[in-house]
Amino acid sequence: MLEKKSNIKAWFYLLPAMALLSVFTFYPLFNAFYLAILRDFSFLNRTASGFTLFGNFIEVIKDRNFAIAMKNTSIIVFVSVPISVLVALFISVGLNSIKKLQGIFQTIFFLPYVTNAIAIGMAFAFIFHSDYGLFNTFLGWFGIDPVNWIGMGASWSTAMFALLIFTVWGGLAFKIMVFLSGLQSIDKQYYDAARVDATPRSRVFRRITVPLLSPMIAYITITSFIGAFKAYRTIIGMFGPTLRPPGTLSKDSLITIVGLVYQSLRNADTIGEISRAASASIILFAITLIFTLIQMWVSKKRVHY
């Protein structure tokens, strides 16, 4: 136990961080909850007609875009995250086992991390261009006709497919970096021991590498899920502010829950929209929190520290 005197000292050292956090994190956080329960809040006049506990939440849920946003967000979360974690795992194990050019490959795989998501999104929009995109050229090698992925009037499913590929790729860099550093900290003797005992490669991966890497895998999975729930930048990068391929109806929108928040914020002048934005973000927060708690509960049983 710290003595009282040094306790005060500790608080003193925390003061600058606490001050900043209070202004930029805690206040907005509590303010969001406050905004969410105001009835008919006007952003311009800073007035409200009273309080409503669930009114704003109900309005958000009743919005026809909400169901679409939930569907899109769920697909992005439950498809892109498992795929990108698995792909990153295989790439890092591969990278870790090569000796030559490892540094170069590491740099190549890390590049997406230091590149702006909007810029990458635009690059990907070009890759999926129906006439001169790389992806259709690639498919052409296998005799597949060009597909209108994200162009004028493209369907929701092709647009979502392109978005998922982009999301998976964009998330690889950081995961690979974490997995690689994890792999490099695993004692080589485990692998020597496995070799002497004639362990097949797939078994080494399943029984030794994955369990010893499980703290990293759990960390990456949880943070990736949280990140994926907040997906927005990728979509605006690829499809622009309409969040859907040009010439499509809003039912084919790729809007996510964060997209919903921004949609309300854009109409902040309308009475009650700010409260709806706050409500939507609280709904997202609640979903993410519940999901993270479940994951932490699961990983407690499956992770070997």
């Binding site: 485990y190 021991a193 029984r207 369990p211």
Partner: peptide
């Protein structure tokens, strides 16, 4: 092995 290399998990 010198440090036994027992699989910790």
């Amino acid at each position: 092995f010198q440090n036994y290399a027992l699989y910790p998990h």
